[in-house]
Design a protein around this nucleic acid. Structure first.
Length: 622
RNA sequence: GGGCGCGUGGCGCAAUGGCAGCGCAGUUGACUUUUAAUCAAUUGGUUGCAGGUUCGAGUCCUGCCGCGCUCACCA
């Protein structure tokens, strides 16, 4: 339950004073003739005309700055479109109205509606000469204070920023309300996703939606979240990818489909991983991975153009050119180039490990890792990926890392032994990297059901050691493929990372409105809220106290006997709150008691009745 | 999960183991063109939680909670 701070109490008191004046704090009706940017633009245009007409406007917004100078006051209000200054004089507003400003009954953070003619103040700032001001919404809690100084060159310096990351993520609304740059990130995010849709629609692809809850997960080797459907008595997984469902649609006769949606992976979080993230996948019939490369390059250039105005972007101070063509290099050649050896000279995991070890490149690698994993995760991830600042397509991945990709095409018969083995052991898969970050993944999709089945078995065998989480065999997917799947190229890309790139952010959390954070510990305020509810519904009284045992800080819930004299009522009353109570118990070092006039209970795993003697004993032990 | 770091009024930050302070915001007063307005006065803190060492702990130690960075995991 909310326990107002001093500042909040002051605002509550103001709220009462406003109500005493007969003012509505949260009126239902609003008037607004222009958004702020439009009002300013209109005024600037009229100024250009010689005999400027008065521009009367009614604008709305949140007060972000308030400067009362006796009988004249200035405020800045802000709506999504921008800010404008309110010029308020007692003469124009009248004593009564002006008093609201002068006495600060209207505070910074309140939403107001202001009417008047547009004007310039003596210092030249475009303002509204306010003759009527109305409260639209009273802010009872003050937002963090951020002051802005506008320099002559238009630059804005912020003072007293709101930057504690935890508070900003947990109270994103406050972050957005005071940090304009944060608001801009999410506008740009929306534009990015729209630009992607525009592009893909323009390519003639059909946007589709496939199940988030899947009986079998697949399409990526990631650990899933699982859940259960009660009525169907069935376990379900939250999807880790859309791949298998989208490709089934090509069997169904669509030439090209795409989906933008949420994937869920039960894995660690990092600056570029969130447990749920936005994925884009598309599958297009009658093209191979080279066709996908073309689309990829065009798509990134076009989206960047649409979102930032240019295909040349700056990320963390580095100029990045997204315009095609991008560098395309096989993983084998990239390793050759950056590390100076041909991994095909070490065609088994044993020989490769031995070689890498001899060069001091095996740190973090296990001899038991598969050959493909050594190359892709270790060599690529650690030694190649960080160098890929300009967009780079790394292609032709080892087969055991690519269960849905077709084998590399070539002339095995005519090549020498090493090249023959290379072609047999690699696939038409590529990943592409920008700013040292993996941005996406694509293949010439496997459409041979017999080969696909073999791959499932191979994967199972290869990763059996890691047991629990291999890609399960999806028999229905194979069935679909047996009906005939057109040759196709597929693509998957993390949209959040693309947004990071286009907004110059280094953490995925800064491009997610509500990044995943561990839930906060139950607080006393939460518990009070819980009990206020229970008490209101069930009609009992309660009291929560600290200071049970001298100076030791303890929390106790006190339920007077007349209200909860009957034990089952007590149990009922606590049933809902018990999990929270247990949680709270941790915060109070394990001591939380419930008392009635008749009995004492300790909250443990359950509610345990104890004697008064036990109670005092356990307290003194603490 | 491991390592490193952080947690002090609403926000941003100080405080060799020795009186918990500053700026902004707030409150009161002055000011009819300010813009980080200014001037004067002033309120507000169980220093994340719990224990310990000490004459004395925001500071040192232990445990817990949360966040950040990083490593691991993530074909």
């Amino acid at each position: 339950m909310w326990q107002p701070t001093k500042l909040e109490l002051e605002r509550l008191e103001k709220a009462e004073r406003l109500q005493c004046r007969g003012l509505e704090l949260y009126p239902a009706r609003v008037e607004r003739s222009h958004n702020i940017a439009a009002a300013v633009a209109l005024f600037l245009r009229s100024e250009a005309d010689a005999p400027a007409e008065a521009i009367e406007v009614t604008v709305t917004g949140r007060i972000r700055r308030l400067n009362s100078k006796g009988k004249v006051s200035f405020a800045h209000i802000e709506d999504e479109s921008g800010r404008v200054q309110l010029f308020m004089r007692v003469n124009a507003l009248g004593e009564d109205s002006y008093e609201l400003i002068r006495r600060k009954l209207i505070d910074i953070d309140d939403f107001v509606q202001a009417s008047g003619a547009m004007m310039r103040t003596r210092t030249g700032e475009v303002s509204v000469n306010v003759d009527d001001i109305r409260l639209l919404s009273k802010a009872l809690s003050p937002l963090p204070v951020v002051k802005e100084q506008r320099l002559a060159d238009g630059a804005v310096i912020e003072y007293g920023e709101f930057k504690d990351t935890e508070s900003r993520y947990r109270q994103r609304y406050a972050d957005l309300a005071v940090n304009k740059s944060v608001r801009e990130i999410f506008i740009r995010r929306a534009r990015t996703i729209k630009a992607l849709r525009d592009f893909l629609d323009g390519e003639g692809m059909l946007e589709v939606e496939t199940p988030v809850l899947q009986p079998l997960y697949g399409g990526a080797a990631a650990r899933p979240f699982s859940t259960h459907h009660n009525q169907l008595h069935q376990d379900l997984y939250l999807r880790v990818s859309f791949e298998l469902y989208l490709k089934r649609l090509l069997v169904g006769g669509y030439d090209a489909v795409y989906e933008i949606g949420r994937d869920f992976r039960n894995e660690g979080v990092s600056y570029k991983h969130n447990t749920e993230f936005t994925m884009l996948e598309f599958y297009k019939a009658y093209i191979d991975y080279m066709g996908v490369m073309d689309i990829t390059e065009r798509m990134f250039a076009k989206v960047a153009q649409q979102v930032t105005g240019s295909a040349q972007i700056t990320y963390q101070g580095q100029a990045i050119n997204l315009a095609p063509p991008w560098k395309r290099v096989s993983i084998r050649d990239a390793a050759q180039e950056l590390l100076g050896f041909d991994y095909m000279d070490y065609p088994t995991s044993d020989t490769l490990y031995a070689y890498l070890d001899s060069r001091g490149l095996a740190e973090g690698l296990e001899p038991s890792d598969t050959w493909g994993r050594m190359i892709v995760e270790h060599l690529l991830g650690n030694y190649i990926e960080p160098h890929l600042i300009q967009p780079t397509i790394i292609k032709d991945y080892p087969r055991d890392m690519s269960p849905f990709a077709k084998r590399l095409q070539g002339e095995p018969a005519s090549a020498d032994e090493k090249e023959r083995h290379y072609i047999e052991s690699h696939t038409e898969r590529f990943e592409f990297f920008i700013a040292g970050m993996e941005m996406g993944n694509a293949f010439t999709e496997l459409n041979d059901p017999r080969d696909q089945q073999e791959r499932f078995v191979d994967m199972k065998r290869l990763y059996a050691a890691e047991s629990d989480e291999t890609t399960p065999l999806d028999e229905d997917y194979l069935k679909a493929m047996r009906y005939g799947m057109p040759p196709n190229g597929g693509f998957g890309s993390g949209v959040d990372r693309m947004v990071m790139l286009l907004t110059d952010q280094t953490s995925i959390r800064d491009v997610l409105l509500y990044p995943h954070l561990r839930s906060q510990q139950m607080t006393e305020a939460d518990l009070r809220g819980q009990f206020m509810l229970e008490a209101a519904v069930r009609g009992f009284e309660y009291r929560l106290d600290h200071q049970l045992a001298g100076t030791k800080r303890r929390l106790a819930l006190y339920l007077p006997a007349p209200n909860v004299g009957v034990e089952y009522r007590l149990a009922n009353a606590l049933e809902g709150a018990l999990p929270q109570l247990r949680n709270l118990r941790k915060a109070f070092a394990g001591y939380l008691y419930v008392m009635t006039d008749e009995a004492l209970y300790r909250i443990d795993e359950n509610l345990i009745e104890i004697s008064a003697a036990d109670f005092w004993t356990s307290l003194s032990e603490a």
